[in-house]
Amino acid sequence: MQKIKEVNLKVSYTSLLDFQVTVLVIYIIILLAVYLAPLAFSCPCIMDRHTLRPRPDIIGRRGAPMLAPENTIVSFNRALQNGASSLEADVTISVDGVPFLMRDRTLRRTTDVGKVFPARQFEDASLFNWTEIHSLNAGQWFLKSDPYWTVETLTARDRLRIGNQTVCSLVDMLRLAARANGSALLDIRRPPPEHPRHRSWFMDTLWAVQKAGISPKRVTWTPDTDRGRVRGLPQSANEKLSLEEIRQRGITSLTLHYSKASHTDIQEYLAHNVSVTVSAVNAPWLYSVLWCSGVSSVSSDAPQVLRKVPYPIWLMSRSAYRFIWLTSDLVSIALVIGIFCFQNYHMIRWKMSGMQNYNPEQIVLNAVANRTNRDLNVMKEKLIFS
């Protein structure tokens, strides 16, 4: 009977030891993975500050739509006042050939077309003539809906001006850009096939550029149609293209959403003299990362926010990064060892006191044999502490 108990105790002790070894191995593997994880991290802002490119230009995307109704004169004015060097607008051609600024397919969201022309509120915006479009109010919706929770910060004078805004023509926007010595990026929506200007829409756009008096070199063309007829304007595209496609289409720049513009892609385009504009950049941290990546400009709904970023908010040399990484690892290792020693203080003290010849198996077996001498009591105490 006693031998059976001895065998069972040995099996239990061996199983416990195997489990502890397995847990220890898993813990060490996880710890090493955490320590070596920085090797897999890649950040554009880990670089020598002397290689940092100039600050990216800020393009007012539909003006400054957080401060005023999008695609209106007051919105573009706000963008220029807040440091934008260029303006981006959505262009639609009216039924009588006047390019005007409208993001949506219809006029319902940003004008009072439902009140003025209730029977036509679901029609395509390009099927209205310019007289009808210019009669609509394009500011009251902003004051009522307050899309960015900024209306309460406006003064009474600003609210009055915004409330009287009308739909902006392309000519008016380009004139404003020319007076500010700025440039323009045009996202033009081609009229539908049934539209009377379906074949001549690009001529209407060129006419507006000429009438505004702005240099054609400051107006970037983005539609991927009729590029051969507008060679006088800088060519851009709103999609990621191969270098071969870029050369074939005569494109000199790309406008990409930040989710599609990786650091590797940006570096490859820049190496082949293709400038990159990244759109929908409203956060200072994202602007800082793209600055480190070397983009030439960003398109933003919040130029008033980005103007407050005179330098990347996070920039670190590789040597400083390695120093912080190694220091953190060494401190962590010291803490792990310290915690281990603290939790196993009694076991370490026992082994250093000359009791190495005793082991848990012998203590338990002696207890089974009802040994009650002084050495057995000491060994039981050490077992409890261990």
Rank of each mutant, 00 (worst) to 15 (best):
L254Q: 05
M1L: 05
F19V: 07
V7D: 07
T327D: 10
G163H: 03
N129M: 04
R229G: 10
P118W: 10
V289W: 01
A280F: 05
R62H: 11
G182C: 09
M203G: 09
A208Q: 08
I266W: 02
T166H: 15
F323C: 11
L39M: 11
Q210N: 14
V368Y: 14
E70M: 13
L315Q: 08
D375I: 03
P193S: 12
T220R: 03
L101M: 11
A156K: 02
L101D: 02
T92W: 10
S126M: 14
V295F: 07
A283V: 09
D146V: 00
A367S: 13
S200A: 13
Q20T: 14
G63D: 06
A68Y: 12
I348L: 15
A367T: 14
L254H: 00
Q140T: 13
R199S: 15
P360T: 06
D301I: 05
G250R: 01
N373S: 08
L290K: 10
L127W: 14
Q235W: 06
E194G: 01
G139E: 07
A177S: 01
A37M: 14
G232M: 15
S145I: 12
K211A: 13
T205C: 15
L330G: 13
P69Y: 02
R218A: 10
I188F: 03
S200Q: 03
W149N: 04
Q140E: 08
R307G: 00
P310N: 12
S319A: 11
L186Y: 10
P44L: 05
W207N: 15
L36V: 08
D57K: 07
E268L: 10
S299H: 02
E381P: 00
L170E: 00
I324S: 13
A261K: 07
T225P: 00
S135C: 06
S299E: 04
G232V: 14
Q235R: 05
C45D: 06
Q362E: 12
Q121T: 08
D158A: 02
A177L: 01
V7K: 09
T166W: 04
Y358A: 05
N370L: 08
V364I: 13
L136F: 05
L143H: 06
R179N: 06
Q235K: 09
T92V: 15
S242T: 15
E194P: 01
R105T: 14
M355T: 03
E88S: 10
Y269W: 10
Q140R: 04
P54V: 00
E123W: 11
R349P: 04
R78F: 10
N71L: 12
P216E: 07
I30M: 15
L127I: 02
V289P: 00
Q362N: 04
L9V: 00
H134I: 01
D96G: 09
V281Q: 03
P118Q: 12
T372S: 06
V91Y: 11
V11F: 12
S293G: 02
R179F: 04
S242V: 07
V171E: 01
M1T: 03
T51L: 06
R197F: 15
F19G: 06
H134N: 12
D90Q: 09
A40N: 06
T166G: 13
T372W: 09
A79W: 08
P196K: 14
L39Q: 09
W325P: 00
P196F: 13
T255P: 00
V23R: 14
Q356M: 10
